[in-house]
Write a protein that binds this DNA or RNA. Structure first.
Length: 686
DNA sequence: TTAACTGGAAAA
DNA sequence: TTTCCAGTTAAC
């Protein structure tokens, strides 16, 4: 039998319903008939368009010249409504359900199958859960192509040195059920656990051993960590445990060529252990056996681009879909992780009592709220005697970490006499001072205010009720003149300090690791962290404090400056992340807040939001809150057209129904060309 | 970007 | 009733 030609196919609607004749315009003669692939002449493709109602596969005819290159996962160009658009082939099939004529694929960009079937399936699940489009998810999951890099072939992995379960089990023996977890991994099973690590735990090494145990069973792993500093730590630990050549790091800031090269080494199956930041959860690891997320409470895991998926949620979906093991680890515990335990989805891994006893001692010192009420000046004592003495005596043994919750020098300023917050006279922004040498200026518009006068009482002096890390470092330098004071914050983050005595002032999340651990850890201004009015304030505060306290050496001292009666500080003293998460969850349950409920927001202009709410078919048991006007972001003057936001809330069991109706809303809205609204499922911090 | 569809008006 | 055309819509 001869190959079917274009003319043959037009006459065979059941095979390829009426293919469009590719005719040259005007006087040029009709093009020679195109031949189509004899095996699976139809390609199902996902087009890269922002229109929600076009978020489904479309069928195209595969010219025989592209028969071998247009593999599932390949990038192609297709003619879509008269325009050339990028698309991914998701499948090759024998025939199409489409009743109209099929257009031929325009071009195969590359035969490299960059969209693995598992990731195509995951992107569909993620898009559905977050009421977004697959095109948006794929943009997060598949890095941009780098042609030069693609042409170089990936070097193959070295022969692996399989690590026995015994070695990994030993590393994990300090925790109850820890050894059992890694033995199960080495055994080819897929356990799921929430791990609350003991202070001082060398967690990168633990995670490296878990990945090595999984590797020994012939499977790959993905380890997600919050930032590049943590990627580097786990990278070093993996190299120490497995040597080089087995794992790869995936971070956003490594440049397009390196990023694509590393991605290809994973998608080609050359490397099967991945450590990276939030996008790593989409890495197409072959034979995936284990997914790990460390410190899942870090807000860096909340993707800022639509449809705003959270790494932990994607990771849990993927573990379930691919039958892989899951490990949600951290010093602190999120309410969401606790929820996995209450539903029985995951088991708990905890430090043994012995490990906790050997850990550290936490003391809280400072004014109580009652004392502050009587004398607001009591807060001016940032370094109570206990904090002072602890720093002095610990400096004999090694470095001391001082956590200051705000970056900068004078993070906010107020009138020295009447305490009215100092505001900019032109834009009402807060005034700040960047260093002792620099002038007082507005944090929003930058206007310099050399001769400030209080608008309330006319006084000319300023005080700094909130001091940044730079001011703290300066003050400590004066107090301990012969001591090295180092600073780590913002874009000047230190990853490591040695064991020599020094004072290290750091903002939360920027704390360097100390060789052998810190002799003492001081947590300043705890009241400031708790002053935020946010759903996660207490959870976030405890997480920051535990992460800093965990850097202390075995038996190290931790001093928190704050109110000893504060329950969140008490949870730190008892080192009880589980109990704290259980209480938080109970409070959220009674307040109908996540995770017992599922919430979503719809944001847009007044008219767009109005249309959207009319179009929305609310799922069973849904509550609509608002809409209310969205306040302008700090530093920005009110926009010309103000935005409004409505909140939807359903009991958790109706979460999928909520996602589906929001997805349907976006498809209807997009099909009717109504003004766009942003939908955010599980909005962080309500 | 453009082919296919829609509905309304003109022709028969 | 048929044909033509302009504006709309869906998009393989």
């Amino acid at each position: 039998m001869t190959k079917p030609t274009y003319d043959d196919l037009t006459g065979q609607p059941e095979l390829l319903p009426g293919l469009v004749r590719a005719r040259a315009k005007g006087k040029a003669p009709a093009k020679k008939a195109i031949e189509f692939a004899d095996v699976d002449p139809v390609a199902q493709v996902l087009v890269d368009l922002p229109l929600a109602h076009l978020d489904r596969p479309f069928d195209y005819a595969v010219p025989s010249a592209m028969a071998d290159a247009a593999v599932p996962g390949a990038r192609v160009k297709v003619r879509f409504a008269g325009q050339d658009v990028d698309a991914f082939v998701v499948a090759r099939v024998a025939s199409s359900d489409h009743t109209g004529r099929l257009q031929p694929l325009r071009r195969v960009v590359s035969a490299e199958p960059v969209l693995a079937p598992a990731i195509a399936a995951l992107s569909e699940q993620v898009a559905r859960r977050y009421a977004g489009s697959r095109a948006d998810v794929l943009r997060l999951a598949v890095p941009p192509r780098h042609a030069t890099t693609e042409k170089e072939s990936s070097e193959s992995a070295p022969v692996r040195r399989p690590e026995g379960a015994a070695e990994a089990g030993l590393a994990w023996s300090a925790d109850t059920h820890g050894a059992g977890f890694v033995e199960a991994l080495a055994d080819g099973r897929s356990p799921r656990a929430v791990w609350s690590a003991a202070p001082g735990t060398d967690w990168p090494t633990r995670l490296a051993h878990a990945a090595a145990a999984t590797y020994a069973s012939g499977r790959g792993s993905i380890i997600c960590v919050p930032d590049g500093k943590d990627v580097a730590r786990v990278d070093a630990a993996l190299t120490a445990v497995l040597g080089t050549g087995h794992h790869v790091t995936l971070t956003a800031d490594s440049g397009p060529a390196a990023r694509y090269r590393d991605f290809l080494s994973v998608s080609r199956g050359v490397r099967r252990i991945v450590v990276g930041t939030r996008a790593a959860v989409f890495a197409p690891v072959h034979d995936l056996g284990l997914l790990v997320i460390w410190d899942d409470g870090d807000d860096l895991y909340a993707e800022p681009r639509a449809p705003y998926p959270h790494t932990r949620e994607v990771l849990l979906m993927r573990a379930e879909a691919e039958g892989a093991a899951a490990l949600v680890g951290g010093f602190a515990r999120t309410v969401e992780a606790e929820y996995l335990l209450t539903t029985g989805w995951a088991a708990e891994i905890l430090p043994t009592r012995q490990a906790l006893r050997d850990g550290l001692t936490v003391a809280v010192t400072g004014a109580t709220d009652r004392e502050l009420e009587r004398d607001p000046m009591a807060r001016a004592t940032r370094f109570p005697a206990l904090a002072f003495d602890t720093i002095r005596s610990a400096l004999a043994d090694g470095p001391v970490l001082v956590q200051a919750p705000r970056a900068g020098y004078a993070a906010s300023l107020a009138c020295e006499r009447c305490r009215t917050p100092a505001r900019c006279s032109s834009c009402t922004g807060p005034l700040r001072q960047a260093s002792s040498e620099q002038a007082v200026a507005c944090a929003w518009c930058g206007t310099v205010h050399p001769d400030f006068a209080c608008t309330t009482c006319g006084h000319r002096g300023l005080r700094a009720p909130v001091r940044g890390d730079a001011r703290t470092a300066e003050e400590l330098g004066r107090t301990f003149p012969r001591t090295v004071v180092r600073s780590s914050s913002g874009d000047r983050v230190l990853s490591r300090v040695d064991a020599k005595p020094a004072i290290v002032v750091a903002t939360p999340g920027a704390e360097p690791v100390a060789d052998g651990g810190y002799a003492a850890v001081i947590l300043l201004d705890t009241w400031l962290v708790l002053a935020r009015l946010d759903l996660r304030t207490a959870e976030e505060a405890l997480r920051r404090w535990m992460n800093a306290a965990a850097l202390a050496a075995p038996g190290g001292k931790v001093v928190a400056v704050g109110d000893p009666a504060e329950p969140t500080l008490q949870a730190l003293v008892r080192w009880d992340p589980g109990g704290f998460a259980r209480r938080e969850m109970e409070e959220r349950r009674s307040a109908h807040l996540p995770p017992a409920s599922r919430m979503a927001t719809i944001t847009g202009s007044a008219g767009a939001l109005d249309d959207a709410l009319t179009l929305l078919s609310k799922p069973e048991g849904a509550e609509l809150l608002g809409p209310i006007e969205v306040p302008a972001a700090p530093g920005h003057t009110a926009p010309e057209s103000p935005e409004f936001r409505a909140v939807l809330r359903v009991p958790r069991i109706h979460g999928p129904a909520l996602s589906d109706s929001l997805g349907e809303l976006q498809r209807l809205r997009s099909a009717r060309k109504l003004d766009a609204v942003r939908v955010h499922v599980d909005p962080p911090g309500l």
